[in-house]
Design a protein around this nucleic acid. Sequence first.
DNA 1: TGAAACAGTGGACAAATTGTCCAGTTAACC
DNA 2: GGTTAACTGGACAATTTGTCCACTGTTTCA
Lengths: 173, 173
Amino acid sequence: MTIDQLDADLIALLKKEPRLGVLECSRRLGVARGTVQARLDRMIARGVIMGFGPDVSPAALGYAVTAFVTLEIRQIAGHDPVTEGLARIPEVLEVHTITGGADLLCRVVARSNADLQRVIDQIVEVKGVVRTSSTIALDTPVPYRVLPLVADVPRHRQGDARRGGSGPQRGVT
Amino acid sequence: MTIDQLDADLIALLKKEPRLGVLECSRRLGVARGTVQARLDRMIARGVIMGFGPDVSPAALGYAVTAFVTLEIRQIAGHDPVTEGLARIPEVLEVHTITGGADLLCRVVARSNADLQRVIDQIVEVKGVVRTSSTIALDTPVPYRVLPLVADVPRHRQGDARRGGSGPQRGVT
DNA sequence: TGAAACAGTGGACAAATTGTCCAGTTAACC
DNA sequence: GGTTAACTGGACAATTTGTCCACTGTTTCA
């Protein structure tokens, strides 16, 4: 469930210079190439690293407005048909079912405030949606990030991630 | 501000198989290698592609709980010192300033519900934070995605992204 | 105590990819 | 009609990848 300091360093390195090859990573981190390869494979296999996809900026595509929309839905309808309908709207980037007064929380983008109205109209049209409430994101002082979480490796028990030997010989020979 | 069908295809391809090289991309898309290279460079330069970082799953790291926390802050304090304080908490993944009753919306993760309390306590301790309200994400039927947005290229005006000639000879010669 | 399993090292090899040139062609803009 | 921009197809050396291999320490467990 936890990762290594080396794993963390590797992720941090790839976050900063993502087009780096395995060989170059091994040089930067001071370990053998096979080690880097194995670490990456393992983290991908364990699901820690879900992919390396290009991070696309909706803003750069002209979607300047981000909003959070909470939805109330007809309980009899169930969540699934509603989320399916929402998933069909490209501007809906994310949907969560949530606790509290509302049922769903969506992150949506639009080209402008006027365009946001169009998107919300599409959401309201989804069968099962009873009511919506929108909040516009004016600014994003802290954009989505995971690095601090990754860097937050328990200093003790560093060898947690390894099953067998821990750090047999780093740089020996 | 817009992208091409080819750009969209390229992004979609890289999303699906991110470790693909430029050469392989060019083969799959049926264009010259230089073209793929130029498209990538241009999209990166324009900010459409912000990076290729590894997508880390907080859940796989043991952070099973996701919550959205809205904050009210002392207006005299201003936003900046508060967001700085929030940015120092690793579990705070994202912060937006928002319209409506509250001032800030944060996305946070925690290892458990009990652990969420600890994180919220840390948030409350940030100087300038007056009140918080939390909503737990029970499920995420639509995980963050951008592909539908990218694929949503206007069929007409496809050559928008190019400055000079549009689609000179695709596959000719 | 000893064997097995595991993680890492360092080296080797052919095959593939990258970075970087080039000249030539087509289409749009002034 | 000239200029500019985008794309093609080809070439080159240098680097990287994908896989092998044998060997060394640790930890786990019987």
